[in-house]
Nucleic acid binder design. Structure first.
Lengths: 143, 143
DNA sequence: CTAAGATAGTTAACGCGTTAACTATCTCTC
DNA sequence: GAGAGATAGTTAACGCGTTAACTATCTTAG
């Protein structure tokens, strides 16, 4: 009773995910930014200044994971931690001017990869892919 | 011109992949083993003693990434690095007795998650999922 | 046979993920 | 108003991924 490494959803999933994130990382590299940092930029751009917990929630990582990302981004002068006056436990994360310019380029990278990923697929196929991936997600989430 | 985080293949892919690997990790935890260590076990079980480069290739990680995994597995008494007599640059990685027993349980975990992932999907849908994921992989690999 | 190049493995430096444990601060209840 | 509990952020310890640079060893060409 052998375990077949080749014929498992897990393998296809891993392969696709790996190529995808590698493609984004490679395109982001020349801009001196990582995928996670780009995501922070995106959410701040989209929803304005917000809390670390909020950001971590949207990025679907644990708060401690965000600490390092923000430290590096602060060091690069992209964002700023600003203490909330009404709740001194919170930090409000703000974009700095240099980040605004960068965001346009970063968004373009993401858009390119996103477009490339579904090249040659019909609308119906894309919808189907989404449906099946969502299904896998559900199946596996609730154990 | 906003970047839509919700409606991208990347997001669906990430979500599915995350749940999947989390599900495996959770099931493996009680056995005191990680996903990567389980993979090493699997490939050694399947193909017998082999080189670190070979292993890294099959796991699709870089050789330096494997070093730490093997160090920890050696520390746990699961595997052994054995110097190849015919080519003294290579290490031949061997399973130790305690690993043999563990493997049965680990394989069962993987099988459970793999089965759960496609629950409620027809054979045609699974084939379609594979086809689409492979397509995404190809699309994005060759830039 | 020797010098040059390829290959196997390691280390170092970095980024990022986790959980557990800690510090502040806020909130809620008595 | 004081003590108990919830919440925001951090740190520490761990696992794992990368690239670049280094050490051995083997191979190959001259």
């Amino acid at each position: 009773m052998k375990y077949d490494f080749e014929e498992s959803v897990g393998v296809w999933l891993t392969l696709a995910h790996q190529s995808y994130s590698r493609a984004i990382a490679e395109r982001l590299l020349p801009h001196g930014i990582t995928f996670r940092q780009a995501q922070v930029l995106g959410f701040l751009e989209l929803d304005g200044p917000q809390t670390q917990s909020e950001l971590a929630g949207k990025m679907m990582i644990e708060p401690p994971s965000l600490v390092g990302v923000l430290n590096r981004m602060e060091r690069s002068g992209l964002v700023e931690r600003q203490c909330c006056p009404d709740d001194r436990r919170c930090n409000s994360i703000h974009l700095l001017p240099s980040a605004e310019a960068l965001w346009q380029q970063v968004a373009e990278c993401a858009r390119q990869v996103r477009t490339a990923a579904v090249r040659g697929m019909s609308g119906a196929e894309i919808a189907q892919l989404k449906r099946l991936l969502t299904k896998v997600n559900e199946n596996v989430s609730d154990f």
